[in-house]
Amino acid sequence: MQELRDLVAKEISLYEKTGCQNDIYKLKKLKIIEEIFEDEGCFFKMKREDALHILEELGINNYEDYYKKLISYNKFQKNIENFNI
């Protein structure tokens, strides 16, 4: 998860530096994604297709395999306090 956060932060700083008008949409997206990632268990709270979109958006290779790792049982147990259970 931290890896993903670093990636988003890096991308944001990159786009902020260039300040190109065409990149405004991309920057907007990244800002919202950054906000989503604040929650450690966010991948357990969103639909699979949305998660795949986000990972693809961030340019991750083999995003399906990456997603599987993000929603493994071990991760679930670590985040269990975030859930209404």
Partner: peptide, 9 residues
Amino acid sequence: FQNKTNMLI
């Protein structure tokens, strides 16, 4: 329990 994330999405 998934309100905030879904709202953001």
